[in-house]
Structure formats: structure tokens, C-alpha cells
Write a protein that binds this DNA or RNA. Structure first.
Lengths: 225, 225
DNA sequence: CGACTGAATCGTACAGTGTACGAGTATTGA
DNA sequence: TCAATACTCGTACACTGTACGATTCAGTCG
């Protein structure tokens, strides 16, 4: 029985060259995850199957299991890859700017990869998310948040970003779909007059609302001086 | 080719009696959905398969498809059943109380059925949710929110409830799991000192934080007098 | 009574899924 | 040259959603 790396160490195929005997470049964790992200981006969560993933890599389905323990691990790694964060080299001015930068980058990443927002809460926190939380935690402390209030503050921010992004992502369907939904609403106008009239499903400045709400939230969470 | 009801009309089995020939009560949309909710509650989203559902109903798998178009419809109907809302008969005092009541009821329902929170953003809005949104909309208008601010206000509240509930639900795993996660964090203490020290993954007064944040949010959204 | 109709149930079959198992191959080190 | 290691992959199994068609049953009409 061979020793699967799966969780740790080796796995890098030094220079085996040779490729997969059918010409393509050799398998590797990096390539697998990159292709998985591609597939997820184009086909959605249900579009990712081990066989399709392997096909796209020019490999047999079972070959993936040398590099990866199971499908869930593919999700975890893809999620973590997409959520990686390197803070900007240019020194940011003040704690507030660095918090806002990280959060908007986070949100941006989830919107670029719409499957990620819905997946994130269902998987354990990976290194990328832990790193972001650590940064957030340190920055809030630096901003003067008391130890006792820290957890509440962190989760408030987390909840805000997740809620806003998941919702927005779910309304990112084609305009046709939305129009259809709104039309259905109008047909039942007697039942839902108010949300029909306000065109709730159609007119929403998501990005503006996000920034505004975030400012308010940060104001409320940090000590007023 | 028989005419499937699936979306409309008939479907009620008048008094066919006879049952399923194997004794159980006859199939019906109500029974199917009720059993689906049971299954989802006990086995989670992945635990619901058409065959298992049919087994539990003492029926053949394909019999379900007389009452339901496909599996997605089962999800939609289960979700809607679980999220139904009848406002309290006792007249509530003021708009604020009625908003808070509806939102806490909503949150309570999602926490009682943990699969629902993660599912809700991925499905179209059903009658129950539309009804809740309509109520929210009318109440906010009554509270003095301007037409132009209405959509932003509604979505802010929605985002808040969704974010808080999805996150809390995802941390509702067994205490053992959480302990393990925290221990892993401590092992990597050098990497994540701050969130390790604050025991972010363990100590969180979700319910208290929810109520507090909601109050703040409503304060910010409604016009100050 | 028999013929007919439509509602409802269900068995079989098919394409697709994740992955356990074990055989196969290529590359390395002794 | 031999053995170990790293890696690939074919086959098989249990399970999924559901298309299709046969079957059963209740009720109505002639």
C-alpha cells in the first residue's frame, strides 16, 4: 500500500518529466486545484465532478486521488486558493483603510467566484480565512476595541460581509430571470403590493449599500473618541 | 400521457382510501413535504434522496413524481413550509415590535432547521419569504422610511439576518469539533496568535450579539425624530 | 353488467456520481 | 540489476435523479 501524501509533505513531482504518457503536463496539486477553480467558475458547484476534472487534466479519474484525499478536499483547497490574501505592500494609512481593503478584497474574490460564498460557511475555515480573521482581529485591537468586545466585533463584520455577498451573489442571475421574477410578483400584485411597487428584486445598488453599511458598522464597533 | 399537476390544481386525493396496497396512508403533497422536512432535519441536505424519502413514505420512488416535478421542487416546498409565517394574533405594540418579532421568528425557524439557512439563498424566493418581505416593507414604510431608502433598508436587514444565522448555524457542530478546531489553532499559535487568544471559535454569545446588532441596525435605518 | 377514462402507483433501465481496490508503469537509489 | 518509491489508471460497486411504460384502481356512462 502506497503512502498517500494527501495532507502533507512531498507531492511535488520534481522533474519526472514523462508527463501522463498521453502528452499533457504532469499532474500536480497546483494544477488540479487551478483546474477545479476554472471548472467551478464556468460550470458551478454541480459542474465539478472528479471525472470531469480529470478529463480536463488529461488524466484518469482515479489519478486525482493520489494528490487529494477526496472530493471535499478539492472544495476546501479551491476555496482556500480563491480566498488567499496578501495585504498591499504600500503601507496603508491607518487601521480603517487596512480593514476596509481586506474586506472589499474578500468580497471581490467571492463575487468573482460565485460558488465560493455559498460554500464558505459549510466548510471548516482554511488558512486563508484564518489569516484574514487574524489580520482583522489584530487591526481591531490596534483600533482600540476592548478584549471583551473583540469577538462580537469580528463576528459582526464577518456576518455583514457574508450576508451581503451571499445575497448579492444569489441575485446575480441573468437579468431575464430577474425580470421574470418581478413579473410574477406583479401578477400577484394584490398579495405583495409593497415589494412589487418598490421593485425590490430589480433596483438595488448593492455596491453602494455595502460600502455605506460597512462604514456605519465600523463606526458602531470602534470606540468613539 | 397523464397530466401531472405538479404546479397547480387537483392533486388532493379525495377519498381514494385504498392506500398504497401495502397498508400505509395514501401519498399526498403534504405528507411528502412533511416527511422531507423530517429527513432533512435528521440527516441533513445530503441525506435527502428520492428513494429514501419514498421508503419512509412506504411508497415507490417514482410515485413521488406524480406529486412533484423534480427534486428541486421538494427543496423549494420544504423550505417554504419551514419558513411560513403567521403574524401573532395579539396586536403588537408599534412597528418595531412587529419587525423584531418577524425577524426573530425567521431566525428561529432557520436555526431549528439548519439546512434551511444555507439553502435559502440558492433557491428562488417562495411565497413564505415574499410574504415576510412584504410585511417588512410595509412596516418600514409605516415607520417613516422614505421610498428612496426602502430597498436599501430591506436588504440591510435581510443581509444581517442571513449572515448572522448562516454563520451561527455553521458553528453549531458538535462541541468536540469546535474544541478540535481550537486546538489546531493553538498548535499554530505563532501564525494566529490573536484569534487563538480570544478563543474566537469557542466563546461567542450569538443570541445576544444578534439582538444587539439588530437594535443598532434598526436605529440606523429608521429616521431619527 | 361491461367499456372506458383518468388518477395514481411503481418496476425497470440508463447515465452519471464518489471512490475502494489492486494492477500497472516509470524513476530513483543501492 | 534489483528493489523501493511515486504515481497512474481500469474496473467495479453502491448510490443518485429520473424517463418511460405497464399496471392498478375509482368512478362514470351506456
Amino acid at each position: 500500500m502506497p503512502a498517500k501524501p494527501s495532507g502533507a509533505s512531498s507531492r511535488r513531482s520534481r522533474s519526472t518529466g514523462a508527463a501522463t504518457a498521453s502528452g499533457g503536463p504532469p499532474l500536480s496539486l497546483e494544477r488540479i486545484i487551478a483546474t477545479a477553480v476554472e471548472l467551478l467558475d464556468t460550470q458551478g458547484v454541480d459542474g465539478l465532478s472528479m471525472r470531469r476534472l480529470a478529463d480536463r487534466l488529461g488524466a484518469g479519474a482515479m489519478s486525482l486521488y493520489w494528490h487529494v484525499g477526496n472530493k471535499e478536499e478539492v472544495f476546501d483547497l479551491a476555496l482556500d486558493a480563491v480566498l488567499a490574501y496578501g495585504p498591499p505592500e504600500a503601507e496603508t494609512h491607518g487601521w480603517r483603510a487596512s480593514v476596509v481593503h481586506m474586506l472589499e478584497d474578500w468580497r471581490g474574490a467571492m463575487l468573482r467566484h460565485p460558488w465560493s460564498a455559498a460554500l464558505l460557511p459549510r466548510r471548516a475555515l482554511g488558512p486563508s480565512m484564518l489569516g484574514r480573521l487574524e489580520l482583522l482581529s489584530q487591526t481591531l485591537l490596534r483600533a482600540g476595541v476592548a478584549d471583551a468586545d473583540l469577538n462580537v466585533a469580528i463576528w459582526s463584520v464577518w456576518n455583514y460581509v457574508m450576508g451581503a455577498t451571499i445575497t448579492r451573489g444569489s441575485f446575480d442571475r441573468s437579468p431575464d430571470d430577474l425580470e421574470a421574477a418581478q413579473r410574477r410578483l406583479t401578477e400577484l400584485g394584490e398579495r405583495y403590493p409593497s415589494i412589487d411597487r418598490s421593485r425590490l428584486l430589480l433596483d438595488s445598488d448593492w455596491d453602494g449599500a455595502f460600502k455605506k453599511g460597512l462604514d456605519l458598522l465600523l463606526d458602531g464597533l470602534t470606540p468613539k473618541r
